[in-house]
Design a protein around this nucleic acid. Sequence first.
DNA 1: CAGATCTCAGCGCGACTGACATCC
DNA 2: CGGATGTCAGTCGCGCTGAGATCT
Lengths: 147, 147
Amino acid sequence: MSMVNSVQSRLGYGLKIAQHALRKRMEADLRPLGLTLPQYAVLVELENNTGQTNADLAVKAFITPQSMQGVLVNMEAAGLIERKPDMHHGRRQLAQLTTKGAALAARGHAVTLAVENAMRDAVAPLSPEQASALFDRLRGAARDIEG
Amino acid sequence: MSMVNSVQSRLGYGLKIAQHALRKRMEADLRPLGLTLPQYAVLVELENNTGQTNADLAVKAFITPQSMQGVLVNMEAAGLIERKPDMHHGRRQLAQLTTKGAALAARGHAVTLAVENAMRDAVAPLSPEQASALFDRLRGAARDIEG
DNA sequence: CAGATCTCAGCGCGACTGACATCC
DNA sequence: CGGATGTCAGTCGCGCTGAGATCT
């Protein structure tokens, strides 16, 4: 009995190629704008809720504060965001979009529309109930794997 | 209508968290052995088919030859693999496991058994037909996304 | 004190560009 | 010769760990 054909290995492989395709496609779409995937994620997050700390943004992106720190340093150097000390809290740095950052976020939305459409095509043959079941299955897999 | 609740965004989010959980879990399991995820993948691949080139291994791992080159340099320095020039082809370097590498591969299999079990639990409530449908759905999503 | 936050240093991975060697 | 393939070198960004400093 070959391990590569077992049910759990097929699920792992399926997860890998699907998420890999999604990531590669978005990176390719955003590259012409000079944006990386985590940078675009930060732009979107600050667009929805301005004035967040490094630690806040790290939690949203599922990465460590140290990793997000490097991303924010690059984005500030590129003029996409500003970080201003919190008046009421000594060490906190609140990040917000610059005019340039907001404009790039809008262009990013336009560029990733095609990917959104591809995702819709992927779930198009499913009924709303089946689509929700697929989502719940992925959530459940993540929970089981985390132990 | 909120975009974060749309069907395609839910699928993208589900893919992200499930694959993220799988990767993090395997990294954590392999770290005590001094192995990274791509290193373990190379060990498994060479275990199944010895004497492969850098370019061969890169294709299997879905990364560029340049990226795989860095991985193999580290593994050769750690004594996990050997690379010997192909007699019949001037520039090719054929990689094979060392005794140390083969032993670490075996330990890696033992350590990742728990993750395999967690994956089985994730698909346990599904019938074989439903599990295959889930796999096909992920493959189809990857195909749609690639365009 | 403990907890939260930010920062710096080092390492490995993965991408990219550019260059060179080799094979057909 | 020219095209395809394989390797090597340099640079960049991401993500991790470890450690330290500062503020509540």
